[in-house]
Nucleic acid binder design. Structure first.
Length: 279
DNA sequence: AAGAATGTTATGTA
DNA sequence: CTACATAACATTCT
């Protein structure tokens, strides 16, 4: 269940565990047997994250491209003794990497394939700036938004405009910036865009550090809520439809935007007056 | 056991 | 080329 923070965190932790090491690779379920055979015995020279994509660089020049999709997961195991048996793989395991005392399982990703430089360039060229990357250029996102009539809520999910944001962060970032998700993207002012960019970057950074999504400001933590939603203590609006807003108590609304459920507080996020009255 | 889910691409239409 | 609707794929969890 990954957004950009999960991917960048995986890159950081796996770099620490595997970079510079000779890696044994295989594909226990045979779902990536040919690719694993190519990587087996190579040294992992680097891992790069771009939006929700990962690129693993190998000593013979190969690049492994991974995208976790909706269900992809990494599982890492530490082995005391290299002679110990390998931990069992669960169904859907595509690739297993073994180095020294580390075993890494990659299960269920949408993409797990070897790419040549042209393919990698094409993939990256389709992505908007990633706020977690040092080389991110917010002007590219600003220019892309200015051309779009789609709602800002939909635009934030479009990886071509800006990359790394998923459904939780789009809802939370719009709440924190106080913007109604249905505002046309190109109607945003520059200061509003700057606030969105800064908010998304800060949220993704926090998530990368913590390893989980936690967007609620400590100042709002004490606000009474009857939320029974798992993880509901850590977000403002995501999956909190029908519950009182943590800030103002107004009922949080949900509807469909860009194929996904979106959640927002009509009061804190300046819904059109008609809608606010109706709720 | 149906349905939802922290994702994305493809296709047809206007 | 943009926008929108719809379907499709993928897998796990409740």
């Amino acid at each position: 269940m990954p957004e950009g923070h999960t991917i960048h965190r995986a890159a950081r932790l796996q770099r620490r565990a595997l970079k510079g090491k000779v890696v044994r690779a295989d594909s226990p379920q045979g779902r990536f047997a040919a690719g694993a055979a190519v990587l087996d015995g190579q040294t992992l020279t680097g891992i790069e994250a771009y939006g929700k994509h990962l690129f693993y660089r190998w000593s013979a020049g190969d690049t492994l491209h991974v995208h976790l999709g909706l269900y992809g997961k990494f599982r890492a195991f530490r082995r005391e003794d290299p002679a110990d048996p390998l931990p069992p793989t669960t169904a859907g395991t595509r690739l297993r990497l073994v180095a020294d005392d580390i075993v890494l399982h990659l299960a269920g990703p949408t993409a797990c394939d070897l790419v040549d430089p042209a393919q990698e360039d094409a993939l990256v060229a389709r992505l908007g700036p990633d706020p977690l990357r040092r080389d991110a250029d917010p002007e590219r996102a600003w220019a892309a938004l200015a051309r779009r009539t789609i709602p800002i809520g939909a635009a934030l999910l479009d990886q071509r405009i800006l990359s790394g944001v998923g459904n939780v962060y789009r809802c939370e970032a719009l709440f924190v910036t106080g913007l109604w998700p249905e505002r046309p993207a190109r109607a945003l002012s520059r200061p509003e865009f700057d606030r969105i960019w800064a908010t998304v970057a800060a949220m993704l950074r926090d998530g990368e550090k913590a390893g989980r999504i936690l967007t609620v400001d400590p100042a709002d933590v004490g606000v009474r809520t009857r939320s029974q939603v798992p993880g509901g203590e850590r977000v403002y609006v995501y999956k909190r439809d029908g519950l009182p807003c943590r800030r103002c108590g107004t009922t949080v609304l949900t509807w469909t935007s860009a194929l996904r459920a979106i959640f927002a507080c009509p009061s804190c996020q300046h819904a059109p007056a008609a809608l606010e009255a109706a709720s």
